[in-house]
Design a protein around this nucleic acid. Structure first.
Length: 646
RNA sequence: GCUGUUGUAGCUCAGGGGUAGAGCACUUCCUUGGUAAGGAAGAGGUCGUGAGUUCAAUUCUCAUCAACAGCUCCA
């Protein structure tokens, strides 16, 4: 007999070799019908695998992340089985579960697959699922594994097997389909009640762009049709928040082929919103001891040769432009830091002067790959809320912590709570991608890890994500469709001070090298605003929103009073517009609601007579009538406190 | 950059070898209406661009540009 410990601490005895599924059955049949996999001693395994010794056990169902992942992984196998049935000879790459569903990379040997084919595949998958095919695990020798896939003529699986150790190779089969797989899997295909194949895309084999591009099919499955329908509704809702759609609808920004790809045009409403954000940060920065500087949009090529950026990113920059007479080369500036280094050098610095903090809303230009351009989140011309802090080595941590505080202040002011702080360190394997001494890298990495811990940030560590000159702390957020973006960033840099030979005179009257910290709380205004739009679904907080108040006269008889109200609001620095169209009040309200205007003021005979306004709040409805001065106070209070929309 | 899909009016989209349609928006007129669409009339498009096939191309073919999804990249 063996002792099984449950999550609640209860211990029960079972015969050796019992499976998680058996245990579930011993508790209740209903539970057994829901068990997808099991976590035994912290490791997720098939619910049907025998447990050979004392163990802790957690039964995994659809409500567990690992349970979902197991079902989606099994769904990938089910899709593969269906693919093999419909497209004999198809070759398989990898087919993992992902955050929302699964995919399988396949090679169709030049055959193409369309959206209609996906519908047929779904039907086939549903048909196979209904047969309750059992997933069976089998350990195989490396030789047997190679023999199987050689006969099957699947070069991708053979390549995967080549990298595996003999003795650790397992196959999983269900129905007529067998795959190289570590598992685990759900007991049988019958758990899969609803299937949706979402889209087709290309993906390089093993993520290397030198390899062949395979066809990737994304899909998702659920234990009931109802849950699938709910998921699809959720996706539709998310699409409505897309900043590209809302940016157009709310007239914030636009693109023009004629202007150029990835070069956003800020329309009046968007430009004003952007300036308010900029002013908000500028104020906070000046209070925190930053010194505003301004530098030109171009810089001599030699500036970037010195910084090392030309060598590293020259090909990803707009190519140098030449002066007509002398042929001197200039680049559109891809970053502000080299300029700021030169500003540092304009006067000798004492250790007493440090830290020096130069801040600039600097517009930079980078040649981003065509296929990467994406709304405002990935563009070729954008404005960084950049600053460079030059400090003594002993000040690095304190400065770093202060920057974290500033970033958190900005995020809190906009109710951004759902972010992760990503600590980006060097690639453990390949150090050749980085410049600078090991000693400095270690110092910098340590400073970041300690600061993040001290500030209690929810962090993830990513190796290989550091910049070539130093480690970073990036604030990552997700957009409406679940794509991850980097917003704020803080980076420690020992390299540029070296390359630009920056110095300060220490207490010992000798020259020393300052340390540089690059930082941008927004990251770029473009990307930040994109994420902000999706975050609030276009309903900006009152202090940011383009039009705060729309005044809606019942009929044009009340226009004079309407104008008087508008004048009073304007004097109170409230952004108000009048809807003076010859339309019924219902229509004016409807359109103001759809335009997400926070406050609507309905004015007619009663209001004009009493000197009042009838206040309506977007999505909330009628708030009743108020004195104009009272309404102004409401608005001003909401603005000063930077309240979120709702 | 790579793979796939798409490109028709300002916006959202239908259509299809015989040179175009809807709704919203826009203009004019009627209506002066109290909390999510009042009525009527009108104007608006070289069907992304270039070539080819055809008596005839917006429709078919090829190229090209752009957008979208994903991959790769991201100072």
């Amino acid at each position: 007999m063996i002792n099984i410990t449950f999550p609640d601490g209860a211990v029960r005895q079972y015969e050796q070799g019992v499976s998680a599924l058996d245990i579930a059955k011993s508790i209740s049949e209903g539970l057994a019908r829901k068990v997808l996999a099991a976590k035994v001693n912290g490791q997720v395994i098939d619910a049907t695998r025998p447990i050979t010794g004392d163990a802790t056990l957690q039964l995994l169902t659809w409500s567990d992340t690992d349970g979902k992942a197991t079902m989606w992984h099994s769904s990938a196998h089910l899709m593969a089985e269906a693919l093999e049935a419909l497209y004999p000879g198809v070759k398989f790459g990898i087919g993992p579960a992902i955050e929302n569903g699964f995919y399988y990379d396949i090679d169709l040997d030049g055959r193409q697959i369309s959206d209609e084919d996906l519908r047929k595949l779904e039907v086939k998958m549903a048909e196979l699922a209904k047969q309750n095919e059992v997933y069976t695990r089998r350990e195989v020798s490396k030789a047997d594994a190679e023999k199987y896939f050689t006969e099957k003529n699947d070069p991708y699986k053979l390549e995967l097997i080549r990298d595996l150790q003999d003795g650790s190779i397992t196959f999983y089969s269900q129905g007529g389909f067998t795959d190289l797989c570590r598992g685990p899997h759900i007991p049988h295909t019958g758990f899969i009640k609803a299937v949706r194949l979402l889209n087709i895309a290309g993906a390089y084999w093993r993520g290397n762009e030198k390899n062949k591009m395979l066809t990737r099919i994304y899909g998702i499955t659920f234990p009931s049709q109802k849950e699938l329908d709910e998921y699809l509704t959720l996706i539709e809702e998310a699409k409505k928040r897309d900043h590209r759609k809302l940016g157009k609808e709310l007239e914030l920004f636009a693109f023009s082929e004629k202007v150029g790809l990835g070069l956003p045009l800020w329309l009046p409403k968007g430009a004003m919103l952007r300036e308010r954000l900029q002013a908000f940060l500028q104020k906070a920065q000046i209070e925190s001891g930053y010194l505003p500087v301004v530098t030109p949009h171009i810089g001599s090529k030699s500036l970037y040769v010195t910084s090392g950026h030309y060598e590293k990113y020259g090909k990803d920059s707009f190519q140098p432009i030449r002066t007509p007479e002398e042929g001197e080369e200039f680049m559109l500036k891809p970053m502000n830091c080299p300029h700021h280094c030169e500003i540092y050098k304009t006067s000798p610095k004492s250790y007493k002067d440090l830290p020096v903090r130069f801040a600039e809303f600097g517009t930079v230009y980078r040649y981003e790959q065509h296929g990467e351009l994406h709304g405002l989140t990935r563009v070729r011309g954008f404005t960084q809320d950049d600053a460079h802090l030059f400090c003594r080595p002993d000040q690095v941590k304190e400065e770093f912590c202060k920057v974290i505080d500033l970033v958190l202040y900005v995020f809190n002011s906009l109710s951004f709570t759902d972010f992760t702080a990503q600590i980006s360190l060097r690639d453990k394997e390949d150090r050749s991608k980085y410049i600078g001494s090991d000693e400095n890298w270690n110092l910098a990495e340590q400073a970041i890890i300690e600061s993040a811990a001290e500030k209690g940030l929810r962090t993830v560590v990513e190796y290989g994500e550091a910049a070539f000159y130093g480690p970073k702390l990036d604030f990552m957020v997700k957009d409406a469709l679940g794509r991850k973006w980097q917003l704020g960033t803080i980076q420690v840099d020992y390299n540029l001070p070296e390359r630009f030979e920056l110095e300060y005179i220490g207490a010992d009257n000798k020259p020393h090298r300052p340390v540089m910290i690059h930082r941008a709380p927004f990251g770029s205004l473009e990307r930040f605003i994109a994420v902000l739009i999706e975050h609030c679904a276009g309903k900006f907080p009152l202090w940011l929103t383009p039009t705060q108040v729309k005044i809606l006269p019942i009929s044009d008889k009340f226009l004079p009073y309407t104008e008087k109200v508008a004048e009073l609001l304007k004097n109170a620095e409230i952004r108000a517009e009048i809807d003076d169209r010859n339309e019924k009040i219902g229509k004016k309200i409807r359109e103001a609601e759809l335009a997400k205007i926070p406050y609507m003021l309905v004015v007619g005979e009663k209001e004009a007579a009493d000197g009042k306004v009838a206040v309506r709040r977007q999505a909330k409805g009628d708030l009743g009538t108020m004195d104009i001065s009272e309404f102004i106070k409401v608005v001003q209070d909401e603005v000063i406190n930077r309240k979120p929309f709702e």
